[in-house]
Simulated assay, not measured.
Amino acid sequence: MPIRLYDTRRRDKVEFSTMEPGKVSMYVCGVTVYDRCHLGHARCYLAFDLIHRWLEKSGYDVHYVQNFTDIDDKIIQRANETGGDWKVLVDQNIATYYEDMDALNILRADDYPRCTEYVEDMIRITQDLIDKGHAYQTDEGVYFHIDSAPEKYGILTGQNIEAVRSGAGGRVGATGSSKRDHKDFALWKSAKPDEPTWDSPWGPGRPGWHIECTAMSMDHFGAQFDIHGGGH
């Protein structure tokens, strides 16, 4: 019996099919490890555990990747609040994540990449987006320019670019942001005092949240894969 999954692009449940017969590539966005897991995390990973189990039971060869976001504003903020090392905080919360998921009898993924292991890939992808005219540098870092691809924005999420624009309310000018448009999002954040940084063509800084899963999923699967999931 085939499985039907909700396709966010078509806004409907569709019969699942794979790019390669008998094989499934599945990437599920993982936790940002600034704290212990909560009920929402349990709900998300239990849902994909059911899909994972069904696919394997049905005879598919499943390659399941789930990342850890181990560098982020929330991690830095929590480490500063507690006066601890952000790397220690990350390792502690990853360890408790495994404990929590094991307690729920959730099968482990095949790979658990960490964002900090892929910074060079993120820099390369960001530079490629700049070269293609989809991103630009400011004194705050590098931003993806949504209006560079208006026909593609929101295809998977169902967001309407005009509706997003109408909700701006003048926030860009009020906040002093150097973004061209309030919708644009950070691919690279310039260094700030007391934050971890990496060298880049745009000066020291760290990757933005939006580019991280792009780099990790492309490393494991290439430009396309069968299932991309996450929390809601």
Score class of each variant (00 low, 15 high):
Ser177Val: 08
Lys152Cys: 09
Lys183Gln: 13
Asp147Ser: 04
Ala174Met: 12
Tyr143Arg: 07
Lys152Val: 08
Gly170Val: 02
Gly173Arg: 07
Ser148Glu: 01
Lys152Arg: 14
Arg171Leu: 13
Glu151Gly: 01
Ser178Cys: 02
Glu162His: 04
Arg165Met: 12
Lys183Thr: 12
Val164Asp: 09
Asn160Tyr: 00
Glu162Ile: 03
Arg171Asn: 06
Gln159Phe: 03
Lys183Phe: 03
Pro150Thr: 10
Gly170Ser: 02
Asn160Leu: 01
Thr175Phe: 02
Glu140Gly: 02
Lys152Ile: 08
Ser148Arg: 02
Glu140Asn: 03
Ser177Lys: 05
Arg180Ser: 13
Ser177Met: 05
Ser148Leu: 00
Phe185Met: 05
Tyr153Glu: 07
Gln159Asn: 15
Ala168Ile: 03
Glu162Trp: 00
Tyr143Ser: 07
Gly141Met: 01
Gly154Gln: 06
Asn160Ser: 12
Val142Leu: 13
Asp181Cys: 14
Asp147Cys: 02
Glu151Asp: 15
Lys179Ala: 10
Tyr143Phe: 14
Asp181Asn: 14
Ile146Val: 15
Asp184Leu: 09
Ala168Thr: 05
Gly173Val: 09
Ile161His: 10
Gly173Leu: 11
Tyr143Pro: 05
Ile146Arg: 00
Gly173Trp: 06
Phe185Thr: 03
Lys183Ser: 09
Val142Thr: 10
Arg171Ser: 09
Leu156Glu: 12
Thr157Arg: 04
Asp184Gly: 07
Gly154Asp: 06
Gly167Met: 08
Gly170Gln: 02
Ile161Leu: 15
Ala168Asn: 03
Gly167Ala: 11
Gly167Cys: 07
Arg165Ile: 12
His145Glu: 15
Tyr153Leu: 14
Ala168Trp: 01
Arg180Val: 11
Phe185Lys: 03
Gly158Cys: 05
Tyr153Cys: 08
Asp139Val: 10
Pro150Ala: 13
Asn160Val: 02
Asp147Ala: 09
Asp147Met: 06
Ile146Ala: 09
Thr157Val: 04
Asp181Thr: 05
Ala163Ile: 13
Lys183Glu: 06
Glu162Ala: 12
Val172Ala: 12
Asp181Pro: 04
Thr157Asp: 09
Gly154Ile: 08
Asn160Lys: 04
Glu162Thr: 05
Ser178Gly: 01
Ala174Ile: 09
Ala174Pro: 00
His182Glu: 10
Ile146Met: 10
Ala174Arg: 14
Gly169Thr: 11
Gly141Val: 02
Ala174Trp: 01
Gly158Gln: 07
Phe144Cys: 10
Gln159Pro: 00
Arg165Glu: 15
Phe185Trp: 04
Gly169Arg: 08
Ala174Ser: 13
Thr157Ser: 15
Ser148Ile: 01
Gly170Asn: 03
Asp139His: 04
Glu162Phe: 00
Glu140Tyr: 02
